[in-house]
């Protein structure tokens, strides 16, 4: 009992002048912390409210029976997950889109790289070509989908594609109405390529312009062929960009919605073919369905599929022995 309250007060008072007040400490040197939160705060808040809470809420909902409510009471464990995995339509849409991704990712990749190289090499009107290929990126998916559906690939003679067929004396093809042969893929894939290639081309173009010309000069002196410089200089130099592009394309493929929905849906229904998982989930959980339990479970499954695909891809592509 040698230390009296008075003593403590005295020692605290003695220490005080050496430490800045709490407020000042929180604000950091030159108010750094304050400014950090002023700038970052609103975005973090938005991220939490509009992204993280909905994700967590959706995971929560996926364990409940929640028809027409987001505050469910009946816990069903993994029942919704089992239902979705047993659901033939959901499985087939996942399957279709794994195949779709395997096709569209390399195709878009190759086409954007090709256009980028062509545009980079061209000596005349480079700015013009660059803009022309990039412009479709600025077009709305919905608008493009409607033009593809109603003007270019309508089933009657007045549609652009059928008018062309007419010129060479062929019958009209109802592009979007038949499943054998599956012409609808032609419509969807051409729309998607038109919309996307330009964007990835710009990414490649930026990367191409950062490759030092001295590398090519050195290769030319060594007598390297065009193919050799592409294979041993361009491709390796594009590696980080290629990895990013492939990953974006992969995620994009699984998130397909806009052009599929607008090209193929008809008055409240969507055909069972070429049905992206997101479109199927839209009909389950939104629309008239309002079955948030199964919808959320499906969304979580889809997220896991994308995650696994991305991890596998990373393993095989990005970290393939750093040569």
């Amino acid at each position: 009992m040698t230390t009296t309250p008075a003593n403590v007060e005295v020692s605290a008072a003695a220490a005080a002048p050496t430490r800045p007040p709490l407020g000042a400490r929180l604000r950091g040197r030159q108010n750094q912390n304050l400014w950090f939160w002023v700038f970052v705060g609103p975005f973090v808040l938005g991220l939490i409210i509009f992204i993280y809470i909905p994700i967590l809420w959706s995971i929560y909902l996926s364990f409940f029976e929640s028809y027409n409510t987001v505050t469910p009471t009946k816990f069903v464990g993994i029942g919704n997950y089992l239902d979705m995995l047993k659901d033939e339509s959901f499985r087939s849409s996942l399957g279709t889109f794994i195949v779709f991704a395997l096709f569209i990712v390399p195709t878009t990749f190759a086409l954007s790289l090709l256009t980028a190289i062509l545009v980079a090499r061209t000596r005349v009107m480079q700015a013009f070509f660059r803009s022309v290929f990039f412009l479709p990126t600025a077009c709305s998916y919905v608008v493009a989908a409607l033009i593809w559906k109603m003007s270019i690939f309508s089933g009657v003679r007045s549609g652009a594609a059928n008018a062309l067929l007419g010129l060479i004396g062929l019958d009209s093809i109802p592009w979007l109405s038949v499943t054998k042969p599956p012409w609808y893929w032609l419509v969807i894939v051409s729309a998607r390529l038109w919309l996307q290639v330009g964007f990835y081309m710009i990414l490649f173009l930026a990367a191409l312009q950062r490759i030092s010309p001295t590398l090519y000069e050195a290769a030319a002196i060594d007598g390297a062929s065009a193919w050799q410089s592409f294979r041993y200089i361009t491709l390796p130099q594009l590696r980080p960009t290629s990895a990013a592009v492939l990953l974006l394309l992969l995620i994009n493929a699984f998130q397909a919605f806009d052009e599929f929905y607008n090209i193929l849906s008809s008055f409240g229904t969507y055909p069972p073919y070429a049905r992206p998982p997101l479109v199927y989930l839209y009909y389950v959980a939104l629309g008239q369905g309002q079955d948030f339990g199964h919808g959320s479970a499906g969304a979580v499954i889809l997220t896991l599929v994308i995650l696994i695909a991305a991890l596998v891809f990373n393993r095989f592509f990005s970290f393939r022995g750093d040569d």
Partner: peptide
């Protein structure tokens, strides 16, 4: 006839009519 029934019905119609 719930939306889920309607979706199943729509799938059926497509498979019958378009795919035979």
């Amino acid at each position: 006839w719930t939306p889920k029934c309607a979706t199943a019905f729509g799938d059926m119609m497509s498979k019958i009519v378009k795919d035979g």
